[in-house]
Amino acid sequence: MIKHPNIVALDDIYESGGHLYLIMQLVSGGELFDRIVEKGFYTERDASRLIFQVLDAVKYLHDLGIVHRDLKPENLLYYSLDEDSKIMISDFGLSKMEDPGSVLSTACGTPGYVAPEVLAQKPYSKAVDCWSIGVIAYILLCGYPPFYDENDAKLFEQILKAEYEFDSPYWDDISDSAKDFIRHLMEKDPEKRFTCEQALQHPWIAGDTALDKNIHQSVSEQIKKNFAKSKWKVSPYP
């Protein structure tokens, strides 16, 4: 049913001896953060192009009545190793059909990316995905998350209040348009939050307000610091 250039396809299903095998489309370009760290040059415009692809794919899902519910950088993979490779959304383990007349209320998702209304245990809608895209856009422009605390209760408190800052010096060179775009997606009230369609029309995505200034050094340093993986510390070979 799902066919979109930025969504990992399910090619086939096999059942054998009590096991179900899902044959997924091969995506070999690696994870989003890895690619950004490896780059020598990275700009707001690069981030804008990435977010455009995510928005376009999630709008497609929403039009089909599907809510992903676990959008995060780890679920964004590059299709190939090519420099201009497209980005692919993966991992639909928590996705759900939004049936007419029914409400979504299950608390699920990944701490740090989950929308306030989910934590407030209120019925929610596809707007939760738009919040997550806002969080991803924030991280893509500074390299660290908008909400952070080692104590989950304190982390959730921040998210429930939608308390986040554009800290200096990390945001000093980022355009006002990018900040405006993020504010519209990371809007506490889901009724006022941008839909994917509205976000796709914002000048930071559809216009030319995304800056071409190289922000690679600052962003990659923060990614390594805040999203450190063992493979960045040790050799990938056994």
Rank of each mutant, 00 (worst) to 15 (best):
S177D: 08
S95I: 06
K188C: 08
D34G: 07
K213A: 14
S175H: 06
P73C: 06
P190W: 00
E44S: 10
Y42D: 04
V37N: 05
N75V: 14
E31A: 14
S168H: 01
D34N: 09
D212S: 04
K154N: 07
V114M: 00
F181K: 01
E74F: 08
L211Y: 14
I139S: 11
L211D: 15
I2V: 15
E187D: 14
V128A: 10
D82S: 09
D34M: 08
F41V: 10
A137D: 06
L76E: 11
H62N: 05
I66V: 00
K192S: 15
W131T: 02
K3L: 01
K86P: 07
I215M: 01
I2W: 09
A137N: 04
D167Y: 03
V118C: 13
K225R: 02
A228L: 15
Y42L: 06
M88D: 04
Y170C: 02
E163Y: 06
L140M: 12
K179S: 02
S125P: 02
H216E: 00
D152A: 15
A162E: 07
M88S: 05
I205A: 07
Q217H: 06
S177I: 01
K59I: 04
I174Q: 00
E163H: 08
G101L: 08
P116K: 03
E31K: 14
K154E: 08
L20G: 07
I174R: 05
